[in-house]
Amino acid sequence: MTQTVFAPWDDPNEKPLIRFRGVTKRFGEFTAIDDLTLDIFEREFFALLGPSGCGKTTMMRMLAGFETPTSGTIELSGQDIAAVPPNKRAVNMMFQSYALFPHLSVYENIAFGLRRDKLPKAEIDARVLEMLKLTRLEKFARRKPHQISGGQRQRVALARSLAKAPKLLLLDEPLGALDAKLRQATQFELMDIQEKTGTTFVIVTHDQEEAMTVASRVAVMDEGRVMQVATPEKIYEAPNSVYVADFIGDVNIISGKARPAETGTFQLHWADAHAPFIAASDHAFSDGQACHLAIRPEKVAISSERPAEAENAVQGKVLDIAYLGNLSTYHVELSTGLILKAQTANTRRISRRSFTWEDPVWVSWTATAGVLLGQ
């Protein structure tokens, strides 16, 4: 049985659940969101990723109804939501602090919104039990928030947010308070819950690994603008700018001037008296155009001799070594002063390092290993 790939953004007939159309938000002189146009689809797990102050929380607050756009429109299921108050939107928001009621039990916390909607008791009970099961909290139903762990509190907040079956759930840095190991486990739980409920999740995070793990698509933001929206693989393998390449993961950036070579390849003249590097690209670069080659360290090989077949190879010396358990990253300084990072997998239990500090080495990569960027 072939599994269909979830990619509604590639289907022109799919109607987005959320549409931002030319949305700008100003606070006095400061522009928090600058002419934003963006579609988010039903059942998506969508991540807004960027440094502090890039506008991601403002976008979320506008979706929740706590802020209104200065100009432009936001639609939810085809309806302009500008005039709809927060409590009337099919949107729920889960805050970083979880905002649980300390005096209420886990059960009562989850039931809170349903009681306010005056639902029949049997319906409330059934829904709360469903949420407890979904978040694996049945055993903790009678406990108060202070009697459970941080990870469990996080799940209570999630259960409470999902109890009213919103069309859209907004998560503001939801895992910020958890330690690294728990964070990782909770990321997979979130994905699982999102898939089971079919709710559209929009998560705000500055943690790139988190965004890359959970999201179907990621919007990388900077200063109120969306720089690129794509799947995690595309963002990593085919960034559209140096900013995006640099923001996601580790990367080498080599700047120079392009010169068209054979079809689909370009020479990158990066330093006088050094042979140009060869880079493949589908995009056209004019002769002499300033450009940047972005290459991930894991795509750069390190060796003591110059590899015979290498399309790009340059000599340097080992300046630094970062041992990360499963990987080692070598910082290699070239004669121009440029430092390139090369990564090797530590496949054997105790591998004798082939290279050490100050060793002369060659770094090499293929013509298709990097991405040539104009900006």
Rank of each mutant, 00 (worst) to 15 (best):
F140H: 11
R127M: 03
R21Y: 03
F247S: 00
P12Q: 09
E358A: 12
K56W: 06
S149Y: 09
F46S: 02
R155C: 08
Q152F: 04
A367I: 14
F66H: 09
S281T: 10
I253N: 09
T336W: 02
F41S: 14
T135Y: 02
N87M: 02
I350M: 15
Q184E: 09
T68G: 08
R19D: 04
G78F: 05
Q3T: 14
I148H: 12
Q96S: 10
E233I: 08
L137D: 00
E358H: 09
S77V: 02
I295Q: 06
Y243E: 06
L132E: 07
A177K: 08
S52L: 13
S255A: 11
L182V: 12
Y243C: 04
R89H: 10
E29D: 15
L373P: 09
D172H: 00
A83T: 13
Q79F: 11
M221H: 06
A159S: 05
M59D: 03
A32L: 06
L38E: 02
M60N: 06
A211N: 05
P145K: 13
D117R: 15
L293P: 09
K121G: 11
H269R: 05
T31P: 12
P297F: 03
V251H: 04
L372D: 09
L293C: 10
L104S: 07
G28Y: 13
S77D: 14
R116W: 07
F101K: 02
D10P: 01
F285L: 02
P85F: 14
E333G: 06
D192Y: 00
D282V: 13
G224S: 08
A308F: 02
T68V: 15
A230N: 07
E223Y: 03
E305T: 13
E123Q: 15
F46Q: 05
S255M: 03
F45P: 02
Y107H: 13
N13P: 01
E298K: 06
Q154S: 04
K234T: 11
T2H: 11
T356S: 15
P232S: 10
D39W: 10
R183E: 08
M227P: 00
T347E: 13
L293Q: 09
T197K: 03
V318H: 13
P16Q: 09
F30G: 00
A245I: 06
